[in-house]
Design a protein around this nucleic acid. Structure first.
Length: 560
RNA sequence: UGGGGAGUAGCCAAGCGGUAAGGCAGCGGGUUUUGGUCCCGCGAUCGUAGGUUCGAAUCCUGCCUCCCCAGCCA
């Protein structure tokens, strides 16, 4: 059922070597997925989740879930809950090892004390602005803070006072005493603790000093006995700092490995921007199906399997890359093609009347539920004189390669009969309102006894039995392949695709669509995959289009 | 500009000195009661210039390009 495709990559290679070198012992690899609960997870996180949990699974190790919750000004319980739900939904299990950096605040405080006592950390009174100035630039070395040589005892006292709330936000920080002239800016006496009189979602008002990420992350991994700390490229510059902390503290030292984060065309992965889209109501929430969030993709109809396969196939490497959104779509189609039950539904209905079909007869025709999986069985679909077909399936003046219905032309109605178009009815504005056909009773089931062929098979719905529903059609969120291609950050919104969502009401579906379960995905034949929206009620059915089917005709049209 | 990374087909990505996997996209063809699926076929000498070697995408040197770092964000 659940497949976990895996490829080989430089990380797995490193791990295989580590396993070989530690051969014979109790050595087991231990990874972790360390999100900050300041937003919802997106497909980029899925890549990290599949990697970390996948590694543990493949090599017989463990993977923890740890929330890096060191900044109470941005973090919320809602986010930790959504994160847990998304990881589970993706098919991974942290087996109870749910940890928080905030669980380690006490230990971290103790580590800080140890560094102060070693003369390797000091309390600094410089303002944020001053710290920046003293830090120097890429080419100019920094200068030592005037507080750098404070006696250990004084540092100890001041740090305790910081903890006890004696100072306002920003008044003092605890810094590591490393090297203000280091070419690596992260080593220029980085801040370890800042004063933040803010309640934390887990520790509440217990602390008013909070560790910075740089101070907390490596030690948290160490405390958990992580063997391989896998993170993204931007932390490569921080590794020397983590190494320094761990060495000074003389505690377990994980091996950090960095890989390139995922980028996708036509969308953004920045949590900051995602938050902005949600807050400004440009999208309808974190689970808006246009977003690359896990919850958005779930609502859109993406299966966990398709996301996992995508993550496995996209590869792990160190080169910056932007994956085509089409690549992602390929994996939903691949998975849904195998699993989604087929249904007939018409998004833009056009009335088709079969003049020579008896008025009050209804035939029950048998339809295959899934040609890719015969065990899915068959169902009955009612057929009658008045039907709906797709507007796009008829053209009064068909261009060269259009081989659907047109005046005088014969096509097949799927599972039913051949019909031939005889007449077109228009309203006073010239819009086609209905088309009249005649059917050939001998072609029942879809084949002609005389062996004649038709060039097209159309989907249809019996008008008298149709279930009406709303379809939400999603397109790319941004117009530009790279939404970040803007002069100024604020202009990002100008790149939004105004047609990213279109709502189409009064779509017509076959009767079996009258009772559907939220989250279920169907293939509407010839149209695409559609997922039942959780916002459905008894009298309104909503389908989100997950993806279209590949469309040869659309390609031809584009090239014409 | 100092430091840290990366450059293999339109997009990902294998390759680890022996003569360029695979996937997606694209193009052509076959099958088909979904213009879907499936099947077959088609593309790169590896950023660049030198060097080492019988032999280099793989080793060395120079150059070019891109990414990351000057948050008391993560």
């Amino acid at each position: 059922m659940n497949t976990f495709k895996q490829k080989t990559d430089f990380i797995r290679e490193i791990i295989r070597n580590d396993l070989k070198e530690n051969d014979g012992g109790q050595y087991k690899i231990h990874t972790r997925f360390p999100p900050e609960p300041n937003g919802y997870l997106h497909i980029g996180h899925a890549k990290a989740i599949c990697l970390n949990f996948g590694l543990a699974r493949e090599f017989g190790g463990l993977c923890n879930l740890r929330f890096d919750d060191t900044n109470p000004t941005k973090e919320e319980m809602e986010y930790v809950n959504s994160i847990k739900q998304d990881i589970k939904w993706l098919g991974f299990d942290w087996e109870g090892r749910e940890y928080y950096a905030s669980d380690y605040f006490e230990k971290l405080y103790g580590f800080a004390l140890a560094l102060i006592k070693k003369g390797k950390a000091y309390v600094c009174d410089l303002s944020g602005q001053q710290i920046r100035e003293y830090r120097g630039t890429l080419t100019i070395p920094g200068k030592n803070s005037p507080y750098r040589e404070r006696p250990i005892e004084e540092n100890l006292m001041l740090f305790e006072e910081m903890k006890n709330g004696k100072y306002p936000d920003g008044a003092k920080v605890l810094r590591a005493k490393i090297d203000m002239k280091s070419p690596n800016l992260n080593m220029r006496d980085p801040v370890m603790y800042r004063i933040l009189h803010k309640k934390h979602h887990r520790t509440s008002g217990k602390w008013c000093i909070y560790p910075t990420y740089d101070w907390a992350h490596g030690q948290s991994d160490s405390i958990e006995g992580i063997t391989h700390s896998i993170c993204t490229l931007e932390f490569e510059n921080h590794r020397p700092l983590y190494d320094w902390f761990l060495n000074e503290l003389e505690i377990h030292h994980p091996r950090q490995i960095e890989f390139a984060r995922l980028n996708l065309t036509y969308t953004v992965m920045s949590k900051r921007i995602l938050l902005e889209l949600v807050k400004s109501k440009i999208v309808k929430g974190w689970d808006d199906p246009r977003l690359p969030t896990i919850s958005g993709m779930r609502r859109r109809g993406y299966s966990p399997t398709s996301i996992r396969n995508f993550c496995a196939e996209v590869g792990i490497a160190k080169a910056d890359s932007t994956v085509a959104i089409e690549f992602l779509e390929h994996f939903v189609r691949e998975d849904l093609n195998k699993k989604a039950p087929r249904r007939m539904a018409v998004i833009n209905p056009l009335k088709l009347i079969i003049d020579n079909y008896p008025d009050n007869i209804v035939e029950e025709l048998e339809a295959v539920n899934n040609p890719e999986d015969l065990s899915a069985g068959t169902r009955k679909i009612p057929f009658s004189k008045i039907l709906y077909i797709e507007k796009d399936d008829f053209m009064q003046e068909p261009p060269p390669k259009f081989f659907r219905l047109a005046p005088g032309r014969e096509v097949r109605l799927r599972y039913a009969y051949f019909v031939k178009c005889n007449e077109i009815i228009k309203d006073r504005d010239g819009n086609i309102t209905e088309i009249h056909c005649s059917y050939d009773p001998l072609t029942k089931g879809g084949d002609a006894p005389d062996g004649r062929k038709v060039k097209a098979t159309l989907h249809w719905v019996s008008a008298g039995h149709a279930v009406s529903f709303e379809a939400r059609i999603y397109e790319k969120l941004f117009k530009n392949e790279n939404p970040y291609q803007v002069q100024e950050v604020g202009e990002l919104k100008d790149n939004l695709n105004p047609d990213s969502l279109s709502i189409i009401e009064n779509c017509m579906g076959e009767p079996s669509l009258s009772s559907v379960e939220p989250g279920h995905v169907y293939q509407f034949e010839r149209l695409g995959y559609f997922c039942v929206d959780p916002g459905c009620s008894n009298d309104s059915i909503i389908f989100n289009r997950t993806a279209t089917l590949k469309d040869e005709w659309a390609k031809i049209q584009k090239s014409q």
